[in-house]
Design a protein around this nucleic acid. Structure first.
Lengths: 116, 116
DNA sequence: TTGCAATATATAAGAATCTTATATATTATA
DNA sequence: TATAATATATAAGATTCTTATATATTGCAA
């Protein structure tokens, strides 16, 4: 399990990446997907997830449409056109971030990091 | 420049990594070193740095000794024996973290991530 | 010689983010 | 019939970091 402390700040970028990858997702689905991809190492809590999704909707990054499946309401989230660019920027930034962290972690390998 | 948002949560681990690497450092030196290694992409602010260092001292992860150089006081920080284990755990966790993020970012490469 | 950049540490107020706990409701399974 | 899984939501609190500010010395440039 990755400590929640480390995760701080990257949750939004992770959500945007998944939305870009999968097109249209609902909250519960996002938590399941993250759990699946990371083999349980990252577990998104609902108290973190929903406030982020609501904020993304508020600032126009995503739009929602509701769907009722087996009498349970699902709120689907999808990137807007503007949200597509936001997502790309955030994902690029996240890539740059982990590359930079790797530079700190493996100073011996230096520029070889570029290979990966 | 890496956004400060992404950095949240990983600063402590970065500081511990540098202390493990260099043995004995003072605060200002740590900010310079991070700036140098990351080519200016990560810039540690003093408002973040010193509270972290003070906390590490308080919980026994580091010890300090003062030195006066050119009439300016330097506070040197060094890992304690207990701090060595803490640092190793935190660094391992940070490595696991970036590996996991890479899994999310590059789902196509799958297990090949292990090569790097 | 005067002012600015660099060196060096420190803290307080506030913003932002996330955790923990709680609430609600349905369906399927044991 | 009770529990697990599905599904969303929010409030209170902790934590972490940003921004601003304070202090003090040295060296360099105008």
């Amino acid at each position: 399990m990755i400590s929640k402390e480390l995760l701080k700040g990257s949750l939004k970028s992770i959500i945007l990446k998944l939305l870009k990858e999968n097109g249209r997702m609902y909250g519960y689905e996002i938590t399941q997907k993250v759990d699946e991809i990371t083999s349980g190492k990252i577990q998104l809590t609902y108290g973190a997830l929903y406030p982020i999704l609501h904020k993304l909707e508020k600032d126009g990054t995503v739009t929602t449409d509701n769907e009722s499946v087996n009498n349970r309401t699902r709120v689907y989230y999808k990137l807007t056109k503007q949200g597509q660019s936001t997502a790309m920027e955030k994902i690029k930034e996240l890539e740059e971030f982990i590359d930079t962290i790797r530079t700190i972690l493996k100073p011996d390998f230096g520029l070889n990091n570029a290979i990966c």
